[in-house]
Nucleic acid binder design. Structure first.
Lengths: 118, 118
DNA sequence: CATGACACTCTCCTTTGGGTTAGTACCGCA
DNA sequence: TGCGGTACTAACCCAAAGGAGAGTGTCATG
């Protein structure tokens, strides 16, 4: 009954669910994090854009700005010409990788199952 | 380098990420699944609606229809008056619970950390 | 001499998710 | 007799997310 009270009290929307999804819920949020992770070293803006085709400038920029504001990504700007900006994962960002991998794995196995059943 | 090729080949959008998020990405998708799970028995439409306040009829209906179409939820209709419809998790839906709990836990601990640091 | 790379910004446009309101058909209960 | 509960559907609306395309300033390369 404690479980149900928990729902009835209507806290469901205020749990970690909503919190986590606010951070990684965007169309390319997880892809961006994962791409940086897999690269094993900082990634430049245009490199990231090429990896996340067909993302647009606008979306990539806002995606990165939000990830930075949420402390998942670190932005390092080199004031030179031509400009150079590198993005890397913060420890917090890294801590999300296992969670994202679970999501990914579930989807992979499910896709495989669907394919098998046809 | 295999990792990077994986990205470069541009398969990132076609991985389990996108697949899983298509299934549970809606505003109330995970909440609905979790509510049914916690109830330990089938939930009726209006009961679910009360738990997911402030969800609207339209959104709850489309949410449930999509979950059903994706095989995560089972819909059982009792042709009586007044009508009665019960929703329960399929085994596939149940298999998502641990993944969702990981997402939830990460968010909870992160919220706690943010609170602590102020 | 001109093109392209760099890391963007700006403006406008479309799509999508979700919200609002109203209505349906029937019944039990006060 | 009329109100509330049951599980919806239909029509319309709104805001936010994302996409398209052009522009910026400087430099290296062909």
């Amino acid at each position: 009954m404690a479980d149900i009270d928990y729902i009835k009290e209507n806290r469901l929307q205020d749990t970690g669910f909503a919190y986590t999804l606010r951070l990684i819920g965007g169309k390319y949020k997880m892809q961006a994090l994962y791409a940086i992770h897999l690269n094993h070293q900082p990634l430049r803006y245009n490199a990231l854009k090429r990896l996340l085709v067909p993302i647009s400038f606008k979306t990539l920029t806002s995606t990165l700005r939000e990830l930075e504001a949420d402390g998942l990504v670190h932005r390092e700007e080199y004031p030179q010409i031509p400009p150079k900006v590198e993005y890397s994962l913060t420890p917090l960002g890294e801590s999300l990788i296992p969670v994202m991998e679970d999501i990914c794995n579930w989807g992979e196995s499910q896709m495989a199952a669907v394919k098998r059943d046809r």
